[in-house]
Computed example of a mutant assay.
Amino acid sequence: MAMFQGGIKAAAKMLAGLSKAAREKVLETISKKDPQMAEALHKSMYTFDDLQYLTPMMLIELLRSVKVADMGLALRIAAPALKEHVLKNTPRVMRQEIEEILMGPPQLASKVEEAQERIMAIVREKIDKGQLIINKDSSETLV
């Protein structure tokens, strides 16, 4: 059998493109042979910067489920496009709170990464439940 050359990130990207049912079946099969690999793939399917592909309504729904302080911290090392997307689509009071944390005193990188992981755990759960959709293909419209 040929060895897969793309690594976990490439495999996770392919998995993310599958239907929910197909993705679950593949992850379940992998999990039986290598639970750590299945978990690594599940975590790698979506990155924090992928949140820029959420619709404004989905972003607001996500913000209701996460700590505003976590979002402020997590955005410190986010792509500029994601920062802009979050701040542009966040209600004013919440945006002010996020900006205060974002512009506040320096934080340990580990604290920022932990905040991102807490948010991504919620994101993965919502994606698995069908409550969020990360649509990287902007030519495809969500209805």
Rank of each mutant, 00 (worst) to 15 (best):
M1F: 11
A2W: 09
F4I: 10
F4E: 02
K9S: 15
K9N: 15
A10N: 07
A12E: 04
K13A: 13
K13P: 00
M14S: 10
L15D: 07
L15I: 08
A16I: 00
L18M: 01
K20H: 08
A22R: 03
A22F: 04
E24I: 02
E28A: 14
T29M: 06
T29P: 06
S31C: 13
S31Y: 14
K32A: 09
D34L: 01
D34P: 04
P35N: 07
P35Q: 03
Q36T: 11
A38V: 03
A38G: 01
A38F: 07
E39R: 05
E39Y: 10
A40F: 09
A40S: 15
A40V: 06
L41F: 08
H42K: 15
S44E: 11
T47L: 13
T47C: 04
T47V: 05
F48I: 13
D49F: 00
D49N: 09
L51V: 05
L51D: 06
Q52H: 09
Q52P: 02
Y53G: 02
Y53I: 00
L54W: 01
L54M: 03
T55K: 10
T55V: 01
T55M: 00
M57T: 12
M57Q: 13
M58N: 04
M58I: 00
L62G: 00
L62M: 07
L63M: 12
R64H: 11
D70T: 13
D70M: 05
D70G: 05
M71P: 07
M71I: 11
G72Y: 01
L75G: 04
L75F: 03
R76C: 14
R76S: 13
R76I: 13
I77A: 13
I77W: 07
I77V: 15
A79G: 08
P80R: 06
L82F: 04
H85Y: 08
K88N: 12
K88R: 15
N89T: 08
N89A: 07
N89M: 02
N89Y: 11
T90C: 07
R92H: 01
R92N: 05
V93H: 04
V93I: 12
V93C: 02
V93M: 02
V93D: 09
Q96T: 15
Q96F: 12
E97L: 14
E97D: 13
I98D: 02
I98A: 07
E99T: 14
L102P: 07
M103Q: 12
G104Y: 04
P105F: 13
P106F: 12
Q107G: 05
L108G: 07
A109F: 05
K111M: 12
V112F: 03
V112Q: 08
E114T: 10
A115C: 08
E117M: 14
E117C: 13
R118D: 04
A121D: 15
A121M: 14
A121F: 12
R124H: 10
R124I: 11
R124S: 11
R124D: 10
D128A: 15
D128E: 10
K129G: 05
K129T: 02
G130C: 08
G130Q: 05
L132H: 06
I133M: 12
I134G: 09
I134A: 08
N135Q: 13
K136D: 07
D137A: 11
D137I: 06
E140R: 12
E140I: 14
T141Y: 09
L142K: 07
V143I: 14
V143G: 14
V143A: 15
